[in-house]
Amino acid sequence: MLLSIKDLHAGINGKEILKGVNLEVNKGEVHAIMGPNGTGKSTLASVIAGRDVFEVTSGDVSYQGKNLLKMSVEERAREGIFLGFQYPVEIPGVSITNFMRTAVNELRKHRGLDPLPGGDFIRLMEEKKKLVEITSNLTNRSVNEGFSGGEKKKNEIFQMAMLEPLLAILDETDSGLDIDALRIVANGVNRLRRPDNAFVVITHYQRLLDYIVPDFVHVLFEGRIVKSGGKELALELEEKGYDWIKNEQD
């Protein structure tokens, strides 16, 4: 098992947001987490990534058999956890190339490898750029600075391709994307699917799941996963709306 979350409670500023989340993710699987706004989807992603503004009050999270909650943010990243951000932040003056080179070499150092020589790095980058159909010189620009919504999300997928994570969590990657960008982002993900990695795709809408076909769909509601099923659950949700879940809970 890659990731196992047991009865996770977490919150911010004393306010509990996750109220007992259970989730198991195996290698080779794609999980979709759906749910209305404000039910804790992004909080769950942040807690897995280790953002310290969120406080874990109880529960266990193990990743590859290790206690994830004891690991620093960068350790988790180097051990293969990737978070595709909903709102990627701008870092003025730092080119994507430079940013990725630092990240890739940190990863290599963690694995006991020498830094990637410049030429090899450029070749790797060109290869991965094709994957997300980045044809422009986007990688020479500063990280996310002045990027359109689509460019920001493509950049997240590009970084994921560069870092080849074992567990990728995509936090509302589809939000703010037009249909072409959505297709490109989804194709990127599909090309990166392998038997030894896993994806957790967080989304508000069903439409992303037309492109990224999940093995499991979970509905997060008021801090708990209240319903799990196959890909057909997403369609059912689309049809009946979240009120269906609300009514069931009431």
């Binding site: 003056g93 730092v94 940190e106 870092l163």
Partner: peptide
């Protein structure tokens, strides 16, 4: 910003290096 540091850390870059990167970017 806290967001910039977290973004870097999430890519495996530790705080110290992240500050180096951000500062160099600022001064570019």
């Amino acid at each position: 910003s806290e967001d910039q540091l977290f973004y870097c850390q999430q890519r495996g870059i530790d705080t110290e290096q992240a500050i180096g990167l951000i500062v160099n970017g600022y001064a570019r």
